[in-house]
Every structure is written in C-alpha cells, then in structure tokens.
C-alpha cells in the first residue's frame, strides 16, 4: 500500500496546478523512490515528467508499484478543500479504486478526509534519452513567463537563440515582430535573478508559444527555470523543487 504525508498542501497544489491543463488525466506511478508521472498532451507535442521524491514525504511507505489513474480536475477540486499549510496524507491500497486524502491542521485540530475515484488509464511511457544539450539557460521564472506572455501577443511561435553572450527570444506575426534579449549576467545579491548560459555550441530553434505559456503555469514551483536546447531535439523546460521536479519537453517546429 501507499502512505505518503507531505508537510505543506501548497506543494501538491502547485504541482497539480502546473500540469492539469496539459495532461488532464494521468497515472501517478508510486514506488519506493517516490511519486512520478509521465504523460503527453493530447496532441502529442509536449510531454510532462514529474517527480516527488520519497524523501520529500514523512513518512513515506510504498512497498510495490502502484499506478494511480487520476483526473486532475477532480483532484484539484479536492485539493481546494485543503488549506496551504495543512499536512496532506495520501493513502491507497495495492490495487486501488480510490485515493484517500487526509488534510490535517495541527493548529486548530481540524482533520478532513476525502476519497477520489481512480480511473484506468492506458498510458504509454516514452523513453527519454539522456541528452547532452548544446545550451542550458537558467533564468528567473518570472522573466521567462513575461517573455512568453509578451511575445505570444504577436505570434504563435518564438525562435530561441542561445549564444555565449546570452539568449534571444524573437517572433514575427501579422502586426509586426518583436524580440527580447537577456545578456548573461550574475546578480551577486540575488543569484536567482541571474541569467546563465552554459553552451557547447550555438543553438537556434523555434517553438510554439501556446505551449510555453502553458508551461509557465509551473512558475510558482521555483524562482528559476532552466531551458535546455539542442538542434533538432525537444526543448526541456525544467522547474526544480526541493524534493523533485516538473519537466516539460516540447517538440520543435521544423522547417518544411
């Protein structure tokens, strides 16, 4: 059986908020290393990979592989019943047809308990190869969100060009064109506001802004986001958490 308690409901709330629009139904794969998820969006353009490591829970018990097929809109409804500072305990049997959630508030001795019905989801797992990316760009999450939002007003797609000087996001659409360049820099007082580019070779790739805007729903998970690019492979957009991550992979647009 699975038994996993997380100190802060807000962590789980933010993770689900980050992915629910992209992958509304998905399997949570639970085993002794933690709770993982891998799912493609409906159009098979993007892939979400999430991991909440066992050491982010206390206690954490899961002695065999359990797949929890969850409708994330249903889970969101139940998680709205938890306050951000509540502790959440997740419980499921070995062959579960429901997931039990207990929310505890130690301050006012309030305990609430919910069960949500699980679904049978036939999900394909893709093999994500280990990739040495040509460029890895780490930038403030809020900056990435702003760039995606701004450029999506002009165009459906954005070219991301990484050089050792920095990164340039550019787009062109019916009303005109636009670009935002972030030069590599280090903010000593607030390192999370720095822009860093690790580069082995320059890269220039084009991606759908609709998906990037969607990925930015994970912005509350981390102060920085890392974009990893190589020519002709999917972009990796990674939000790291203390005990896990949410990664989005996005297939590039290819010139005909």
């Amino acid at each position: 059986m699975l038994e996993a308690r997380i100190e802060q409901a807000s962590v789980l709330k933010r993770v689900i908020e980050a992915i629910k629009d992209l992958v509304p139904d998905c399997n949570f794969d639970c085993n002794d290393t933690g709770i993982a998820l891998q799912a493609m969006d409906n159009s098979h353009v993007a892939l979400v990979a999430m991991l909440l490591r066992a050491d982010g829970f206390s206690p954490y018990r899961c002695d065999r592989n359990i797949a929890l097929g969850i409708n994330l809109n249903s889970l969101t409804k139940v998680l709205r019943c938890a306050q951000n500072e509540d502790m959440i305990t997740l419980k499921a049997d070995d062959a579960p047809d429901s997931l039990n959630l207990v929310f505890e508030n130690t301050e006012n001795e309030r305990i609430s308990e919910y069960d949500i019905k699980l679904m049978d989801i036939d999900q394909e797992h893709l093999g994500i190869p280990d990739t040495e990316y040509s460029a890895s760009i780490t930038l403030p999450t809020a900056e990435f969100q702003r760039i995606c939002r701004d450029l999506s007003q002009l165009s459906e797609s954005v070219a991301i060009e990484a050089t050792k000087e920095g990164v340039k996001f550019s787009c062109s659409g019916d009303i005109g064109n636009g670009s935002v360049t972030l030069r590599t820099h280090q903010n000593v007082d607030k390192p999370e506001l720095s822009t860093k580019v690790d580069l082995t070779e320059p890269v220039n790739l084009t991606f759908s802004l609709k998906y990037l805007v969607n990925f930015c729903k994970a912005s509350s998970l981390s102060q920085t986001v890392t974009l990893s690019l190589s020519n002709e492979v999917p972009l990796l957009v990674e939000y790291k958490m203390d005990n896990g991550y949410v990664r989005f992979y996005l297939a590039p647009k290819i010139d005909e």
Binding site: H44, V45, L47, E124, L126, G127, V233, L250, A251, I254
Partner: peptide, 14 residues
Amino acid sequence: GAQQGNIMSFFGKK
C-alpha cells in the same frame, strides 16, 4: 511556415 513536430518521433515508446 514551420511544421509542429511530434514528441513521439523524438522519444520512442518504452
């Protein structure tokens, strides 16, 4: 214009 790629053509089924 550019064609949107499919993620499955990059990552094979396990």
